[in-house]
Nucleic acid binder design. Structure first.
Length: 462
RNA sequence: GGCCACGUGGCGGAGUGGUUACGCAGCGGAUUGCAAAUCCGUGGACAUCGGUUCGAACCCGGUCGUGGCCUCCA
């Protein structure tokens, strides 16, 4: 089976045909760096990371270009810097580093290119000039505005007409706009916020509007038309709609990207969207403090990427336990296993991760019965999806942040308990077990297959 | 108000015209000094009302419910 992807533009699943198989190009809208990313952002990272992996496997590691931008010019960043009394650069630098740590924690490969908005101001200005010269933008009151009525099929991606949008508009229309839906490409700066010399003959300094940076970066690094553009479903309108409008009108192309992919939301509770604006979010940092990153990744992939995902502590715990089982089985697996066809087939069907995970469960069951091929395949398949990245010992040694345990003392108690058990002093061995339990330590006894001896491992109670 | 999703067993979650995935929990068993962990087995569902069909959870229509976008948002 070949790769099928659901395309928001056509509202259907389509067979994926790259423009150039030797250079498959994908763009995903990365974060605006003003604070910790939350797990909804994490979902987007994980979903497009998985797609990146699938593409690399199909077309070759060196034949896929994944650009994921960092937006480091934004009013929220300015506000945050002012609030903390630090420089804007400090906020963006610190947040970017944190973002990288979070992405790595969720086992996301670094993208091929990670462009930053501040590094593409000239390209943005050039886009403004081009759009004005082509009659798709105009200058008014120190702003450069995109002229929405100048684009015939504006609204195609989000499937809405300009008339509908104008009718439903809930925002006051700025007086300098010719048409209510026109949006800002460039705007004047106020004192104390970043400013650059403006394009299009505007005398005063200014800064870019929200959407232009992605058009500039995607155009520069991936070309006028590329294969896949992705992001969260909330970006469909207005961000992607406006982004593709700018790019297409500037470049004179029929599409900006052939395939547009959007992941669904995380739900905090009761079907409620999780978002920064609602304040009901969990940061990736908090998640990674409480659970291994792979467990978070598995939880984020536990439902299909276009479906809403109800987030819960239980989901995370279940995911972690599933990984416990995979790790334990894969610990002595061969390294030359094949990725299971069932797993690949599921992933190629518009990233059907629940089905792929089910296939991993089936391999686990086979492997548990002693099937070495299944065991090796489980390992290879799980690793392909970004799991089983460390050794079983490393996995077991994971501890939640802020939990201090005297490992030597625990070890000594375990030895004492085993000795008590050997002399059948069960009262004493149970007492030690209770003592450890009171310390938050959960014991696991297992019989060594070769020696027949009881061996005890432990972990922090969950 | 406009546009768009979605309603599957206790929970999570695939599927999509005809063998009712899968995971967790539950239950039964194996194992254990007793537990935990592990292993094996197992019951249980397709919001509702109509229609199409030999046959519908799956297609069509109505109803009810939930959510999203239209404003910063993954």
């Amino acid at each position: 089976m070949s790769l099928q992807l659901y395309n928001t533009l056509t509202r259907s699943k389509e067979r994926f045909e790259p423009i150039d198989p030797t250079n498959v190009r994908m763009y995903a809208c990365g974060p605006t760096v003003y604070s910790f990313i939350h797990i909804g952002n994490g979902r987007m990272l994980v979903v497009f990371d998985l797609l990146f992996r699938v593409l690399r496997r199909t077309y070759g590691t060196g034949h896929v270009t994944y650009a994921r931008n960092i937006t480091d010019v934004d009013d929220k960043i300015n506000a945050r810097a002012a609030e903390e009394g630090v420089s804007i650069a400090e906020v963006t630098e610190r947040t970017t580093q944190q973002f990288h740590a979070d992405a790595a924690g969720l086992v996301c490969l670094p993208p091929t290119i990670e462009p930053r908005a501040t590094g593409h101001i000239e390209e943005m200005k050039a886009l403004c000039e081009t759009l004005v010269s082509k009659g798709h933008a105009y200058v008014a009151d120190g702003h450069v505005l995109f002229d929405v009525p100048s684009m015939r099929d504006y609204g195609r991606l989000s499937n809405r007409s300009v008339e509908e949008m104008e009718a439903g508009a809930r925002v006051d229309v700025a007086p300098y706009k010719r048409s209510p839906m026109d949006f800002v490409l460039w705007k004047p700066s106020k004192p104390g916020v970043p400013a650059w010399p403006s394009p299009c003959g505007i005398a005063e300094a200014g800064r870019p509007g929200w959407h232009i940076e992605c058009s500039a970066m995607a155009g520069k690094h991936l070309g006028k038309v590329f294969d896949i553009h992705g992001g969260g479903i909330d970006l469909v309108f207005p961000h992607h709609e406006n982004e593709l409008a700018q790019s297409r009108c500037a470049h004179g192309t029929h599409v900006m990207a052939n395939v547009w992919m959007h992941n669904g939301f995380l739900e905090a509770a009761e079907g409620e969207k999780m978002s920064k604006s609602l304040g009901n979010f969990i940061t990736v940092r908090e998640l990674l403090d409480q659970t291994p990153g792979e467990a978070g990744r598995l939880a984020l992939l536990s439902s299909h990427y276009r479906q809403p995902l109800p987030w819960s502590e239980r989901l995370v715990q279940d995911s972690r336990r599933t990984l416990d089982l995979w790790y334990e089985l894969a610990a002595d697996a061969d390294d030359d296993g094949e990725i299971a066809p069932d797993v690949l087939e599921a992933l190629e069907d518009d990233l059907n991760t629940p089905k792929a995970i089910a296939a991993l469960h089936a391999l686990r069951a086979e492997a548990a019965k002693g099937n070495a091929t299944a065991k090796a395949s489980l390992k290879a398949s799980a690793q392909f999806m970004g799991f089983l990245q460390s050794s079983f010992d490393e996995w077991r040694a994971w501890r939640p942040a802020g939990v201090a345990i005297d490992e030597a003392a625990v070890h000594a108690l375990i030895i004492a308990r085993l000795q008590a058990r050997k002399r059948k002093d069960f009262k004493e061995s149970d007492r030690i077990r209770d003592e450890l339990a009171a310390m938050g330590i959960q014991l696991k006894d297992a019989k060594n297959k070769d020696t027949g001896e009881i061996e005890t491992t432990w972990e922090v109670k969950r």
